[in-house]
């Protein structure tokens, strides 16, 4: 069986085992917030505080109109949080599940899907803030709103393939999680989350133009702030998702047999 076929069949089996990875994902959330009264809503609260503080501080620092700036920061931060935890936790997907991997013969990608599920649940909690901000400052355009759905799908798919590769590399090379965490930190500052492309002078516009993550943020953010993402954004994020998935699956198939030995 070729590497891709192996990975596809693993993916298929993993998807069929959805009961297992949704349960594993939930368990992790439950463990983190065991016996806490409001559970994962603590995340919502801390994210809300962060959004409020950054929005107000940077908004006045950059001299921005708060009604425009705060929704932008809120959506950007919530989306970035999903992306960075998909990649960060994806890098630990196999390592943290080593006890399962070495005891039972399950499809391997369930451990990546478990990370995805967990972070989607957390994202849903954080999304309350976005709704709140939109309710307060008003929806700019109802027409562009539905575009958020395909945008989010592309966004998640892109986060997933990066997480999938990160997980595989991290299982083999244990320095990888640290490297990834550091890179994500840098990526946060060069990606237009606290700022947007139009705020940069022409000279520095390349930071946004050549940053693939900028397009990823745009594809989820623009529909919510009343802008229809241009065709180039859709094409770039779509092609990235497609090629990324093919590469990630090929890599997973290629090293599929080694995973139990690595963890």
């Amino acid at each position: 069986m070729s590497a891709l076929q192996l990975a596809f069949s693993d993916l298929l089996h993993s998807l069929r085992n959805w009961r297992l990875w949704t349960l594993l994902g939930w368990l992790e959330i439950r463990q983190r917030y065991a016996r806490s009264k409001i559970g994962p809503f603590w995340l919502t609260i801390s994210m809300g505080v962060l959004v409020g503080a950054l929005g107000v501080v940077y908004g006045s620092l950059f001299g921005q109109n708060i009604a425009d700036y705060l929704p932008m920061v809120a959506i950007g931060l919530v989306a970035w949080n999903l992306f960075s935890s998909l990649v960060n936790e994806g890098s630990m997907a196999y390592i943290n599940s080593s006890s399962y991997i070495r005891q039972v013969n399950t499809p391997k990608l369930i451990y990546v899907l478990q990370v995805a599920w967990r972070n989607l649940v957390i994202f849903a909690h954080n999304f309350v803030i976005v709704l709140l901000v939109l309710a307060v400052f008003g929806v700019k355009s109802w027409l562009t709103l539905p575009l958020f759905i395909p945008g989010l799908v592309l966004f998640i798919f892109n986060g997933l393939w990066i997480g999938m590769i990160a997980g595989l590399l991290s299982a083999r090379f244990r320095d990888f999680p640290q490297i990834i965490a550091a890179l994500l930190q840098v990526a946060f500052y060069v990606t237009p989350i606290l700022f947007h492309g139009a705020m940069l002078s022409e000279k520095h516009r390349w930071i946004v133009t050549f940053n693939p993550l900028a397009y990823l943020i745009d594809v989820v953010r623009q529909p919510l702030v009343g802008i229809a993402p241009p065709a180039s954004t859709w094409i770039i994020t779509g092609v990235m998702a497609l090629l990324g998935w093919l590469f990630a699956l090929w890599l997973t198939g290629r090293y599929h047999k080694r995973i139990p030995y690595w963890v």
């Binding site: 439950r30 463990q31 006890s99 399962y100």
Partner: peptide, 13 residues
Amino acid sequence: PLLDINLGMDDQS
């Protein structure tokens, strides 16, 4: 396989 009795035992559940 029944290799390790602690497999998939979640303390909080």
